[in-house]
Write a protein that binds this DNA or RNA. Structure first.
Lengths: 234, 234
DNA sequence: GCAAGTAGACTTGTCAGACATCTGGCGACG
DNA sequence: CGTCGCCAGATGTCTGACAAGTCTACTTGC
């Protein structure tokens, strides 16, 4: 694990204080000198920390006036928004909303991919399903997850839309922990194998509507699994 | 227009050189000292420029080794990716892909909003349609666009999904210029009014599938309009 | 008395130079 | 031949200073 530099520490602590509500949107954040004294670092370090938060549109720096907190809907960092939205009892709500977002992107990408995917990619898709089946039989969770991820990644790339991939990348990183959890349950594995088989077949038929529906069913299953896990967890 | 600070200029020029292919993904960019000499600024300025690019996951800075260019699919900035994807003759392709992305988010948000939207918001929706109709009659393009944007913004917020709004914000900023162009054509205005009316009615019926379909038709129209304008432009 | 102008305090922007710390390779030494 | 240590080069941080924008409040001229 990479030890964080001072800049990272200061940026994190400042973001924590923003999320905690110390500095509500629209208000100003303490000056660079004050922060450098508080965190016992030089002003340059504080400036670099601010620059990272400004690049994520969390802060707006105005020369001569001060530095201000942007409203949450202008933040450009999915992870920062996730941290802010997960405060308190909202973690379950945030998880569901993330799945909803994933559903939009994946079903859309699948619909596009249906009319653009190559024969070779379809073959690879069925190969991934076979790999999932095998991993299920020998009870190899890691291999199962890997084939699962490769399957979805292939569809994303087959949609031939660069921007979808860009938006999806941070989402995947946030969700990968929970995916590993759900994938450990054998009955869920069986469900997933069936859904993936249907998706591959739908793509093979080159029917966008059918492909979208197949992926949507898969996402609905994923959402149900998440709800059952989160809500029933002790 | 805000004059860009030196940091912004350096960051832009460096990004331009990356996009131009001077530093392909995986390779290293020149050291801080070399860049500070090239741009005739201090090392601190270069460092802050690098920090902004690092925060957007365009660069990876590794202490003691150097600074490296990330592959495009790891970039976190929609606008930077757009700049990279619009190089050469690809601008039309990039525009279409952006609309595809917007379609995913807006149809998804509309589907969610159908079961969550309040009566008051529905009323406001019809109010916006009325405003569009009025603006159409008196030929006020600015008012038309404003009501249009308010309509879509309302649906986004009615979906009650924070993350959708976060992803959609930069998209909207990128697309707003073209939207103003298409909205200037009177026949397109008429089409849009009809579609918006259908969307509002579908949401009023609280039928998610119907709402999704109505929004999808609207997006299809937008896509067709864009294609006709881009492809037929002299 | 009032308004315009201005001095000052406070903010961020940039610069210069220095030292610390990490990485990787090269060479000396066992 | 392998290992250790040194060194060049990279980024990380600090100090102190000055430039430049913004807002407030006081001064000044009418």
């Amino acid at each position: 694990m990479a030890r964080k530099s001072l800049v990272g520490v200061v940026a994190d602590e400042l973001l924590d204080r923003i999320i905690a509500g110390d500095f509500p949107p629209g208000s100003s954040v303490p000056g660079e000198l004050e922060l450098s004294a508080r965190h016992e670092v030089s002003r340059m370090t504080v400036r670099e920390a601010m620059k990272t938060l400004e690049a994520q549109r969390i802060l707006s720096v105005e020369r001569g006036r001060g530095t201000f907190v942007n409203p949450l809907n202008r933040w450009a960092s999915l992870e920062a928004v996730l941290r802010a939205a997960s405060e308190g009892q909202n973690e379950a709500v945030a998880s569901v909303q993330l799945i909803e977002l994933r559903r939009m992107l994946e079903t859309g990408a699948c619909e596009l991919a249906a009319s653009r995917i190559s024969d070779r990619d379809i073959e690879a898709l069925f190969g991934n399903v076979a790999a999932m089946r095998l991993a299920h039989e020998v009870n190899d969770v890691a291999a199962f997850v890997e084939a699962d991820l490769a399957f979805h990644d292939l569809i994303l790339r087959a949609s031939e839309n660069v921007f979808v991939a860009v938006l999806f990348e941070p989402l995947q990183r946030v969700l990968e922990k929970r995916r590993a959890e759900t994938s450990a349950v054998r009955t869920i594995q069986e469900h997933a194998i069936g859904h993936h088989q249907h998706i591959a077949e739908a793509l093979e038929s080159r029917d966008p509507a059918k492909a979208r529906k197949a992926m949507d069913s898969h996402m609905q299953q994923t959402l149900d699994d998440l709800k059952n896990l989160v809500l029933e967890a002790p």
